[in-house]
Amino acid sequence: MIHTRLLHTSRSVLKPATMSARALELKENYTNIHNKALALNPSVRLVAVSKYKPASDILDLYNAGVRHFGENYVQELVGKAHELPKDIQWHFIGGLQTGKCKDLAKEIPNLYAVETIDNLKKCKKLDSVRKTVEGAQKINIYLQVNTSGESQKSGFIYDNLAELEETVDFLLSGECTMLNFEGLMTIGSFEASTSGEENQDFKRLVELKSKLDTKYKLDLLLSMGMSNDFEEAIRQGSTSVRVGSSIFGSRPPK
């Protein structure tokens, strides 16, 4: 939630005496999206997706009280995390290669969540490396599920959940000490997200949550919804939405 006063930053970060036009624009955009989200669910979390955007944009929103930011690329996230205040709660929301798990777990002590876990091997790598990082917080894990069945998307296969349940078993085991199984994530297909009707991709994730909650005695969160479909996602049960362009504006080419 946006606070009415500026919050403390690290000494290396200078806060402007007055808000720039860009800072005012970002705060207005964020507030608009946040209010729409809260009207549907007062406890929903809004993650501001800042990929390709400069650290100065993130700092402007940080100074307005925002703490949850999402990034899609490991090296971009590592660079921003080193530069920006250490109480930012970073969400990694991009495709993750197993070889990059070490960088995420080791280089970002304030990594809040990885929302794109799609196999057991990545969980084991994150956990083993995180154990070597002194003072690091546990990483919240979201298992990504391909509920739309699109071949270009990552995620556990919705109709074959044996591997997903094997990963859940590990996350809940005593062997795994630096990861916290917080929820499930999916990305709705373009067709489902623009139909104006109930999103069947979101519906499948809600149904899966119910099954896992019952089997493992959990109360999982759901990360569903982006700029074009976050309101429908919240209506269908999402507790965390990832919004980028509606807050920061269009992105430049990578």
Rank of each mutant, 00 (worst) to 15 (best):
M1Q: 09
I2D: 06
H3T: 09
T4I: 12
L7G: 13
A21T: 10
L24E: 12
K27P: 01
Y30N: 02
T31D: 11
T31F: 11
T31A: 13
I33D: 00
L38I: 11
A39W: 01
N41D: 04
P42M: 08
V44L: 09
R45H: 08
V49P: 00
L59S: 09
V66G: 04
R67P: 03
R67M: 05
G70K: 01
G70R: 00
N72F: 01
V74C: 05
E76Q: 05
E76V: 04
G79Y: 01
K80T: 02
L84W: 04
K86M: 07
K86C: 05
D87C: 09
W90R: 08
F92M: 06
T98V: 15
K102R: 14
E107K: 12
P109S: 02
A113R: 11
A113N: 08
V114M: 13
K122H: 01
C123V: 15
K124E: 15
V129S: 00
V129L: 00
K138N: 08
I139P: 08
Y142M: 10
Q144T: 12
Q152D: 02
K153M: 08
G155K: 13
D159Q: 07
A162N: 14
L171T: 07
L171W: 04
N180F: 15
G183L: 13
I187F: 06
S193G: 10
N199P: 10
K203Y: 07
L208R: 12
K209W: 11
K211S: 10
L212A: 07
D213N: 15
D219A: 14
F230R: 00
E231Q: 12
E232D: 15
Q236D: 10
S238C: 08
S240K: 05
R242F: 01
R242L: 03
